[in-house]
Structures are given as structure tokens and as C-alpha cells.
Amino acid sequence: MDDLVLAARGLHRSFGSLEVACDINFALAAGARHALIGPNGAGKSTLVNLLTGALRPSAGSIWLDGVDVTGLAVHQRVRRGLARTFQINTLLREMSVLEGVQLAVLERGGQGRALLGGRAGQRRAAEEGFDLLEQLGLAGDASAIVGALAYGRQRLVEVAMALALRPRVLLLDEPAAGVPPADSHLMLEVIARLPAGIAVLIIEHDMKLVFRFAERISVLVAGRILTEGSPAEIAADPRVREVYLGGRAHG
């Protein structure tokens, strides 16, 4: 149990009488590649919000690196190693790609509170940020303004900003959403090359991506975990096929 970096224990959340998350349990070890799938309205967004801290659970707890973080705010969980990307690009659109990543590096080191000076730290952060962009194939866009990039490229910047935080857990919220098919291989490559030590939880519609990448898959239906298993087990599970892969497959 000690090597678990992210764990959800008996999470419940209801809005009035509507139960949107019910008895959700799962755990990620260091370096895990875990996917969470489910049809529209299954409660995936709610679960993301519970994990990141945007929503408080009605019951249950969330653990990061063996510490109960259920009561912590969003930014405090980030500081403890939980980074995320957003389903809809949430970027610093008027800044250059490099400056955004530089900011993330500075915040990771707690230097963002420095009222004055910080020139040397900014230079080091920019250099580190550039190296990261290079790894993600974004070096050519380093000085470009984020808002001017093609959508697919902006999705990669999302990942870059999360990785700049050097997280223990990375939550990828539909990383391929909105990316034109011609560019989707870029995201696949980036995901395939994520640092091995990071536990990755991917929330995705795109079956191709999920089955290629995940070592374990949880299936969320109507706010509950229907089943969890290896990709082969999930693919063979008739219940999964019925609710998800059946009539309304997305990928």
C-alpha cells in the first residue's frame, strides 16, 4: 500500500438527491498507466473534480503519496504532486509557450512569491522549460504566442505545463479531445514517452488511445466503477461492451 501515489477510497458525491459518484475506489502505484473510461454522463468530470479538489466529496477520502488530501484545496494538492491537463485548453493565451512553462517551473520551486529580483531563477526556469519543450517536440514553438498556435499544438502545451511541475501523478483529462485526426499521433507519441516514474491517470473517450496506452482500465458507469481490469479483460467483458463499446462507441 505504501507505494501507492494516488488512491480514492469510497468516494461519494451527490447534488441534492442526484448521486453523481458512488463508492469509487481505485489506486495508482508509481509509474502506473491507468485509464478511466465511461459513456457520456457517467460522472468522469465529477471524478476529475473530486480528485483535483474542485469538488469536495460527500464521503470517502483521497490520498496522495500516503497522505489524506481530502481537505486540501486545488493548489495545495498540486503542490503535493498532483498535476493535470484540462479537457478544454486552459492556457495563458497571451504569453509565449516558453514563458508559460517557465512560470510553471518557477511555481514548482515556490519562487512565484518573489516580489523583487528573481532574474537568475527566471533564467534557469526558462532553460529548464526549453529543454522540456524540446523533449515534447515543441522547441520550434517556444517563442510563439500560445493563442496563435493550432489547437493540436496547444494540447501539447497543456501537457508541457503539467510536466513542468514534475508531478508524481499526472491526470490527463481527454488529452485528444478536439485534436484533428492528422495531429493526433503527436499526442500519442508524447503520452507514450511520458517519464516512467510518473503515475498517469487518463480520462478518455478515444478507445484507440486508451487501449494502446493503459495497463489498467476502470470503467465508470452512472457514477460507479463497473469493473476494473487489464485492457484485454475490459475488451472481453460483456457488460462493458453492453454499456459502452456497444451501440455508442466513440473511438
Partner: peptide, 8 residues
């Protein structure tokens, strides 16, 4: 985005 970088 800033919150997701760990900023209060």
C-alpha cells in the same frame, strides 16, 4: 491555469 500550477 495558475491554480493548476499550485498557486493560491
Amino acid at each position: 491555469r495558475m491554480q493548476a500550477m499550485g498557486v493560491s
